[in-house]
């Protein structure tokens, strides 16, 4: 398996800072906005963004984690059921501006499931999507992110992996893997 570095630790830090400033541009001090990280891996991005945003806007920001397993459209179409993760949304999303956060945007199916899952918790005023990596030209559904960390051209056989030092990676970094088996 060959791998190529897309973003190293320093660039990833800069990218996250830029995303935070872009968020502040449209959400001001986040008084009517909340962040929902998509389980399992969007959670890490959401945590990182919360940390930076809180130091920038000097107030607590509501972050929840949304699991989409039971809303996926590939249930019974894959060999085994996917394992669910915890959903924790300790606030109301009714009439709030929601920013959905995920690490990699690929077919858009997870985001579709997330929109569906989110509606169970109320009717948000608006919903936006932030992704760390946008894999271009790979969408199955008409879904586009509002905030993009890095756009990359990839092939179907490739895989994008975001590693976090706090969660088992060597350092914070984003990698593109060439799967030679396929």
């Amino acid at each position: 398996m060959q791998k190529k570095l897309i973003l190293n630790q320093d660039l990833l830090k800069i990218t996250i800072s830029r995303l935070c400033y872009q968020l502040i541009e449209s959400h001001n001090d986040f008084s009517n906005s909340v962040i929902l990280g998509l389980q399992p891996r969007g959670k890490y991005v959401a945590d990182r963004i919360k940390e930076q945003l809180e130091s920038l806007v000097k107030r607590k920001i509501d972050v929840g984690y949304l699991d989409t397993t039971f809303h996926r459209d590939d249930f019974r179409r894959r060999d085994t059921p996917k394992k669910a993760n915890e959903t924790t949304i300790p606030f109301l999303i009714e009439d709030k501006n929601v920013v959905l956060v995920d690490d990699v945007l690929y077919t858009g199916r997870s985001v579709r499931a997330a929109l569906d899952a989110m509606i169970s918790f109320g009717r948000p005023k608006s919903v936006e999507l932030l992704v760390l990596v946008d894999r271009k030209y790979t969408r199955d559904l008409p879904i586009q992110p509002n905030y993009i960390g890095k756009s990359v051209n990839t092939m179907q056989s490739q895989r994008v992996m975001v590693e976090w030092k706090q969660h088992g990676g060597k350092r914070d970094s984003i990698w593109l893997f060439n799967n030679l088996d396929t």
């Binding site: 397993t69 039971f70 915890e86 569906d116 899952a117 169970s120």
Partner: peptide, 19 residues
């Protein structure tokens, strides 16, 4: 572990998932 997830779901205001 799966029941833990469903227990959270049946305590939501909308207690239904489309699985």
């Amino acid at each position: 572990e799966t029941a833990d997830n469903f227990k959270e779901i049946i305590n939501r205001p909308i207690k239904k998932v489309p699985s």
